[in-house]
Design a protein around this nucleic acid. Structure first.
Lengths: 197, 197
DNA sequence: AGTATCATGTAAGAGGTTACATGATTTT
DNA sequence: AAAATCATGTAACCTCTTACATGATACT
């Protein structure tokens, strides 16, 4: 298996295809019409990326010839693709991901839905929270270094960053609580053996 | 004047140099040691960008030969550079800037300190707030389209985005209040003619 | 004397953006 | 019949990343 790491766009494509097999045009529509991260829907990015993933055997294309037109290339994950996606989903949030503001942490969370267990998701979220709180301490340390009356914009910009990360911590706490209660309900239902209608 | 738009890194360089003349290495240190946006401090990005800005006559370099070593190239803004920076600082925040999450809005705010009047800064912040609230309405519209019990991660991801933008709106309101009171104090001091000591 | 840091760069490669191309299908 | 949209792509260009190069000064 090929350990080379992928671009964020490529991981996003793996994640999307994992939820449902898709063509390049389907991906384009997703990026263009839903608030799924901040990816460009330009075909010049999407189609070459899909081809790269196909070359690396992470995706396979099945030619859909139901219509007589030029066949759509519908992509799905190979086994190596599932492994690569799962390995990525298991990566903890790093300080660098926070600083670079790439959107990778929330993207991983979004795709973790069906692929990670509730306990794994909670562990991921808790790691994210810890990394965020450590970075928050760093940022708060800068507050003392700024002469506020001399540089109000510098201090306010720093405050903007701090507030953002504080909001993330709150969101994580709520998300963990919600996932816990959701998983408890699922277990309770499982105990009574799925009563239908 | 050259109306071609610049990359965010290039605008960041104009902004940094506007605060104090700097060499490429000074910029590198800024990016490496302060939480100034999410720029890479790699010389392969910084030095070529400075050269591009010099070629476009937005920056000029003065060779500092106080030391007998290889002279440092200390950059400062040309008049065209000041005009380009000011034009950028006057641009309102767009929906695209919010979606792409580039960090341009807070970067402009940070550099607006000495170059825009308090009234202009407040107008900028208020435009940012309005654009953010409009985008928030868009995002809230997606809430109804998601079946929460079927796709809890999708709904939580959306909520993550919504919370972030709500936090920005709150920060903007506080920032406006602070800038208003700061500017009132400055006017009051101006009336009594700068008492020293 | 040797190592770390200062300070400035270059070279190769990858990925993304913008713009264009192509041909079929659906809509007006 | 014409226009818009579906669907897939290519080509040129630009910027950034990574890694290496270079030579001077400061430190130990």
């Amino acid at each position: 298996m090929d350990t080379q790491s992928l671009t964020l766009l490529e991981y996003a494509l793996l994640g999307l295809v994992s939820m449902a097999p898709m063509s390049g045009y389907d991906v384009h529509k997703m990026f263009a019409t839903t608030p799924l991260g901040h990816f460009s829907s330009s075909p010049g990015a999407i189609y070459p990326a899909l081809r790269r993933l196909e070359r690396r055997d992470l995706l396979k294309a099945t030619l859909d010839s139901t219509t007589e037109t030029r066949p759509r290339r519908v992509y799905s994950l190979t086994e190596a693709g599932q492994a690569a996606l799962d390995a990525w989903l298991h990566q903890q949030v790093t300080r660098e991901e926070l600083v670079s503001n790439s959107g990778a942490p929330i993207l991983r969370f979004g795709f973790a839905g069906g692929r990670l267990s509730p306990d794994e998701v909670i562990a991921y979220l808790d790691g994210w929270r810890q990394t965020t709180e450590a970075y928050l301490e760093e940022l708060r340390g800068y507050r003392g270094l700024i002469d506020a009356s001399a540089a109000p914009h510098a201090r306010l910009s720093l405050e903007h960053g701090i507030r953002g990360y504080e909001g993330v911590v709150e969101w994580i706490q709520d998300a963990i609580a919600e996932i816990r209660s959701h998983s408890r309900r699922a277990k309770a239902r499982g105990g009574r053996r799925a009563p239908r209608q």
